[in-house]
Write a protein that binds this DNA or RNA. Sequence first.
DNA 1: GAGTGGTCTAGACCACTTC
DNA 2: AAGTGGTCTAGACCACTCG
Lengths: 239, 239
Amino acid sequence: MKKLAAQPLYKQVIREVMTAVEAGEWQEDESLPSEIELGVRFGVSQGTVRKALDSLVAEGVLYRRQGVGTFVAGMNDFLARGHFLPLAGADGVAPKIELLGCVRIHAGEQLADILGLRRGAALWQVRRLLRVSGVVIGLEEMLLPEAGFPNLDIRRIRELKGNLRELCWRDFGVRLRDGEVRYRAVAAGQNEARLLMVDLNEPLLQLVRLARDFEGKPQVWSVAWLKTETLAFEPAPFA
Amino acid sequence: MKKLAAQPLYKQVIREVMTAVEAGEWQEDESLPSEIELGVRFGVSQGTVRKALDSLVAEGVLYRRQGVGTFVAGMNDFLARGHFLPLAGADGVAPKIELLGCVRIHAGEQLADILGLRRGAALWQVRRLLRVSGVVIGLEEMLLPEAGFPNLDIRRIRELKGNLRELCWRDFGVRLRDGEVRYRAVAAGQNEARLLMVDLNEPLLQLVRLARDFEGKPQVWSVAWLKTETLAFEPAPFA
DNA sequence: GAGTGGTCTAGACCACTTC
DNA sequence: AAGTGGTCTAGACCACTCG
């Protein structure tokens, strides 16, 4: 491997592996070649491969099992990976996702700015419900450019159990990385109150995120409203 | 360095360095010996020292400046390291902390459990205000066992500008690491409404944390209420 | 036992900052 | 030029899992 663009070798390896993962060279939960073999393939030492894989593991792209191998990780949604915990208690539960619907809308000025589109660009608006042991606990609204995800099919989303992150990857080759989350407390509006079955103006936890792909391009804007009267939200480890 | 307790060398180095930092061997923003020198001191190679320092940097205990050295990081509070961002906008601002007061109370059953104390044990309750450009934006209530922090002095807290984390370290040798955060939305009660100057029942973002020391012992329980009508909260990078 | 990840070394060189 | 962090190698051995 050459020193292109003065990038360190391990960063080049990260890119190469990422590209291969995105190209589907190894399926989900399928093991990659061993660190030594990857080293031979990229012309670097095992230590360098390891350093590269370390960051991909830290980012949740891969996972390792000692003595067994390194595997491609699944693509659970950010919220699906989070935990909902009883206020006083110990163990948390991950929510189940239920697709509500998917419609085509047009970007307002602000949203267009955020997603790097022109004003009025076509967007998909996907809405989902979150349930913990059957009880509705959250509502999520996600917006993604139609240009990048043409012919987004509601039945397809349903097939993947509402897992939009996995869909973006499988059907459109876009691998989303988690973005930073902003937290707010807001009063429930008409919509939220109805869908979450709470009173108007009841406090809801609002999570706002911008998910980017691995090139850093903004891809999905998401706003979620969570009912936290009896359960607190704890985000998943990775940023 | 020996293979005690089957711990890998780099983990032993982490402990050694941590101990030295806690003992105050190097002051804040003072540089540690070079990686090579540390290697000689602990009887390991530079690569192993580096791996150890990597995790301490990731945890925010140390920071590095290429070509210069490795330094002991300051001890800003979790909330003080977070950012408050305008809803639509770009750059966030870190809040200023203002001490409200410090009183001695007794642990209820639940709190005693969490902090690993007996019921009724003496606690310090420290309350602080958070301001962003002068405007009150949050209230934080922290509880810590009197046993671990005897003679906690309000004037001393004030001296350190309300930075309780730094105080725990400097005066009591307890270095707190960030704990996981749980998020909720709650309605403002009497107290919160008065101190934050909002209406009763206005939605507030609640953050609940349990900070532990580097041995994993629970040390500080904290609950914060944040006004997020105009500013969203974004936690600091490190978990 | 064979294959994998996990650790460790000694030594090398590069990139950066400071004097 | 000297000293620091940052990268990289070749080779070694350990710890773990699985057939």
